[in-house]
């Protein structure tokens, strides 16, 4: 079964995407496989409401482990099974807490092993920033690294917010040659395009 990783900076909406995308695909209860950096694995079952409450938070670094769910992605003739993993957000700077740094190391280790990478950015954040700082070195590095090793797409999230359109335009320019899919994890927009990409990549 192909592995697909959601990666990106903190608070771009990775965990909310995982939950709402699963809901969009008809999942009623999330069976999570939670992996810690020391190799420990925990199995959790959450309803969608519980998942939104427990996994998604305004406070950065809510996700400190790798949470994986199995999904059936519809496409062409039938469905393909993939394992979708939510990961700890990455930061531009060195983070002060060891736990968070460990979780980031897990994220990077996982990135090296997966077949499909969904790189998430916040479109309004890119749109609001001064042009010179719109795209960080970290996001460039992720794109450069992941696109040469895996099937790679950029998810421009939070398209429901102000400045998102400008952000999307910037992303399309900065990451020309890569696939950029505009989505709103909150409003569940663009999920069909994500499925088309993942279905295709998950051969």
């Amino acid at each position: 079964m192909p592995d697909c990783l959601i990666i990106g900076k903190t608070n771009v909406g990775k965990s909310l995407f995982l939950v709402n995308y699963a809901a969009h695909l008809g999942v009623r209860e999330l069976a999570l496989e939670r992996r810690y950096r020391d190799g420990r694995i925990e199995y959790l079952k959450l309803t969608l409401t519980e998942a939104r409450r427990k996994l998604v938070d305004e406070v950065p670094h809510c996700t400190r482990y790798l949470d994986t769910i199995n999904l059936l992605i519809p496409g062409g003739k039938g469905k393909r099974k993939i394992a979708l993993t939510d990961s700890c957000g990455l930061t531009d700077d060195i983070h002060g807490e060891e736990d968070v740094r460990r979780a980031m190391a897990s994220t990077l280790a996982r990135l090296r092993a997966v077949e499909v990478v969904l790189h998430m950015l916040s479109a309004p954040m890119v749109g609001e920033a001064p042009p010179s700082q719109a795209v960080s070195e970290l996001d460039r590095q992720i794109a450069r690294f992941a696109s040469l090793r895996s099937h790679y797409a950029l998810l421009a999230n939070k398209m429901d917010l102000d400045h998102a359109k400008q952000g999307l335009a910037r992303l399309q320019k900065e990451f020309a040659g890569h696939r950029v899919i505009p989505i709103s994890a909150l409003e569940r927009q663009g999920f069909r395009e994500v499925s088309a990409f993942v279905f295709h990549a998950a051969r």
Partner: peptide, 10 residues
């Protein structure tokens, strides 16, 4: 190195 806080993710 990343875990130890010696380098940034980038």
């Amino acid at each position: 190195l990343l875990e130890a806080g010696s380098i940034t993710p980038a």
